[in-house]
Design a protein around this nucleic acid. Structure first.
Length: 713
DNA sequence: TGCCGTTTTATTTTT
DNA sequence: TAAAACGGCA
């Protein structure tokens, strides 16, 4: 029996028990967001008597969904399994599997994954005889992916022909091929579901009345069509509860619309709002800095966190000479805390851009501190996994030509692209499956090719002899001899890694059978294309990652690095107020990851884009209340030299660096552009350039220093 | 139209 | 620095 009053604070309690009208829960970092969602679901089931299968809970990542399922199980037991809980995409896919025929989908439709989609675009570009050098397939893919996330696509429009070279044709051809192969892509999952709701009032009504309660996590990250999805299901006055934090909206660049959360009360009727501001994660010092920083944003609903944890820790800012000494410093501190008993897994190094990880890796490696770089290639994207799965994909859907050619050619069977294209062509013209095409064309192949195809078709028949998914996976691994193939073609350590992954794939299939005993091969394949989790090297390791990837995580000790104008906030956002605010929110996210110790660092100079650049301290440092810090850590010259990345130009003498550094932040005047402030400088001598922010002349510009007059205050 | 050398431009990324 | 965009020339 849960005692809601005792186990929740006042705000959380309100957020749990107000179940009758649309509810917006503004949950600051570390204020018990997940707790609210899980308790609310428990409350709905136990106290209100809602059936679990009539509750829909949407998250953004699989990880979040899993975490939530896990915690919900602890509260309500097995009933938790019946709640519809998952990402927008997985929920949509489930709906499409059941009712997709309403938008013309065949029951067993497959989902094309990222790489195969790219391959398909390459084919399309080739067929349409578009110059792939001038117009890279990737651009079409990105533009069309973006387009598919707009209401226009839902309404069956196609991209505007004028917007990009022949994009309408590419779009049509791409769609045609997807249809031919009974495939949908990632973006279709959500868009087609919405289209279906709009096309079929009956289907919409079915789900709308089925889901008596809808809960949404990370609402600040929803985009236009995710909003449509929710509105169609909940209606204007439905029982929808969205939880989010406008101050942690960091995906605007990806289409997330912060107005969804800022204007929630305009989108729904009789909205109630609950603010959660009691933070149980971080020390009071950390919370204070986070608060003063985020106050500088204008686009926010406004709230202030209060610290409720009686723990003290370090909160320091250090300005280092360059990126190497920054890495040195961080490494030393990690060692220090490790000696004090903090486990590596409880420490994280955060940065703005992935390129920054290298210096930390080099240093940690050298000292022998175990670390993991979070955000590498996702498990199911790895080559060996894709190779093996391509057999199963084709077995599952014999129209899938991308999987056909991949599986047919790995390992090589003496059949090349020309033959494959012929088969595809035949299949497409006669509207038969590729297997059928192979059978009909069989006599026309050469002796060698016939042998290759015989083997391949034999493989497919072999797969048909299994019923269990894990047996099929095992069957492919064994019969292709893939492990030997890897051993023969890769270095020993590379092969070892790949073989480990292959075993991991088998494990995943066994785990799949456990969690969904009714699951078919189609379901398993769908789950692999939905999953993007990187199998993070397990064990006790320091995490290195971008702040974006750190969202939702927490660590005892955090190093927030690279606080320099031009890097964080990043170059292009400095003169764009909205973007600068997003950078500031990102910084806020970074700070609030720390539970006990937070170190905020910057470097006076670092190598960026190939040359040493001197940057000014980040605006955010001052906004956080870090006055100009003394250089508190100076590595020995020897270390300094040794870690210097091999630059073409010899290192600038340090004295010079110091002098050019003093220009950053200075006021200057330019004949044409007027007054401005130096952000950073690069180059030296006559070619020395300064990046200057001109208030009245279009913002940031690169100017040769000689054309600038320095103005005294 | 296609190729090659030169110049410009740089994030962040789940599903 | 590396990749993409550009521009000149055949």
């Amino acid at each position: 029996m849960i005692n809601y009053k005792n186990e929740l604070n006042q705000g959380q309690y309100e957020a749990v028990v107000r179940t009758e009208s649309p509810l917006l829960v503004l949950a600051g970092a570390g204020t018990g967001k997940t707790r609210v969602i899980t308790y609310r679901i428990a409350y709905l089931i136990n106290e209100i008597g809602i059936e679990p299968e009539r509750i829909l809970a949407v998250t953004f990542t699989n990880k979040a969904a899993e975490e939530m399922k896990h915690r919900l199980r602890g509260l309500v037991g097995p009933a938790s399994g019946s709640v519809w809980m998952g990402t927008f995409h997985s929920i949509s896919l489930r709906i499409l599997r059941r009712d997709g025929s309403a938008v013309g989908l065949k029951p067993g439709f497959g989902v094309i994954d990222q790489d195969d989609r790219m391959a398909l675009f390459r084919e399309v570009i080739k067929t349409l005889k578009i110059d792939h050098k001038k117009y890279p397939p990737k651009q079409y893919m990105n533009k069309i992916s973006w387009f598919k996330n707009t209401p226009q696509y839902v309404e069956r429009q196609i991209p505007d022909a004028g917007s990009f070279h022949r994009i309408d044709e590419v779009f049509r051809e791409y769609q045609k091929r997807l249809n031919e192969q009974f495939l949908i892509d990632f973006d279709d999952m959500l868009s087609l579901t919405i289209r279906m709701f709009e096309v079929s009032e009956e289907v919409r009504q079915y789900y709308s009345s089925m889901f008596e309660h809808i809960l949404v996590d990370e609402y600040q990250d929803t985009n236009a069509i995710q909003f449509m999805f929710l509105r169609l299901l909940a209606g204007r006055s439905g029982r929808i509860c969205v939880v989010g934090d406008d101050d942690q909206s960091i995906y605007g660049w990806r289409g997330a619309d912060i107005r969804n959360i800022l204007e929630f009360d305009k989108h729904f009727e009789d909205v109630e709002v609950v603010k959660l501001t009691e933070n149980y994660r971080s020390t009071a010092d950390i919370i204070a800095r986070a608060n003063t920083l985020i106050k500088n944003n204008a686009m926010r609903r406004g709230k202030e966190l209060t610290a409720h944890l009686e723990v003290e820790g370090a909160l320091e800012h250090h300005s280092l000479l360059n990126e190497t000494s920054e890495a040195d410093f961080v490494t030393k501190m990690i060692s220090k805390y490790a000696d004090e008993g903090v486990s590596y897994g409880d420490m994280a190094v955060l940065y703005r851009t992935n390129a920054q990880s290298r210096n930390f890796e080099v240093n940690l490696n050298k000292v022998g501190i175990p670390y993991k770089v979070v955000g590498g290639t996702a498990f199911y994207q790895r080559r060996e996994i894709k190779d093996l799965l391509s057999y199963l994909r084709f077995f599952d859907n014999s129209f899938d030509s991308v999987s056909f050619s991949r599986s047919l050619t790995t390992p090589s069977r003496g059949i090349g692209t020309t033959t494959i294209d012929k088969v595809r062509d035949f299949a497409s013209r006669n509207a038969v499956s590729l297997i059928e095409a192979v059978k009909q064309m069989f006599p026309s192949f050469s002796r060698n090719q016939q042998e290759g195809f015989r083997q391949y078709v034999g493989m497919m028949d072999y797969l048909a002899s299994f019923t269990k998914v894990s047996d099929m996976v095992n069957g492919v691994i064994e019969r292709t001899g893939y492990k030997d193939y890897v051993l023969a073609n890769e270095s020993e350590e590379e092969a070892k890694k790949r073989i480990e992954n292959i075993h991991e794939l088998y494990n995943a299939s066994v785990a799949f059978e456990e969690t969904s005993p009714e699951g078919t091969l189609t379901d398993f394949l769908a789950s692999t294309s939905l999953s993007t989790s990187t199998d993070e090297a397990s064990g006790d390791r320091v995490s290195l990652m971008t702040i974006h990837s750190a969202k939702g995580l927490e660590f005892d000790t955090v190093f927030l690095t690279g606080l320099e104008n031009g890097l964080f906030p990043l170059y292009g956002s400095i003169d764009e107020p909205e973007q600068l605010e997003e950078e500031r929110r990102l910084c806020y996210v970074g700070i609030t990851r720390a539970k006990r110790n937070l170190y905020v660092t910057c470097a006076e100079s670092r190598i960026m884009y190939g040359n040493r650049t001197v940057s000014a301290r980040s605006y955010f440092l001052e906004e956080m209340g870090f006055a100009k810090a003394k250089a508190s850590f100076t590595p020995s010259t020897r270390q300094f030299d040794r870690f210097q990345p091999k630059a073409r130009k010899p290192m600038q003498p340090q004295g010079k660096e110091a002098s050019s550094n003093s220009k950053a932040g200075k006021k200057v005047r330019h004949e044409k552009f007027g007054d401005g402030i130096v952000i950073s400088t690069s180059g030296e001598g006559a070619s020395e350039k300064a990046e200057v922010f001109f208030k009245n002349a279009g913002g940031l510009k690169k100017i040769v220093t000689a054309f600038l007059t320095f103005v005294d205050e």
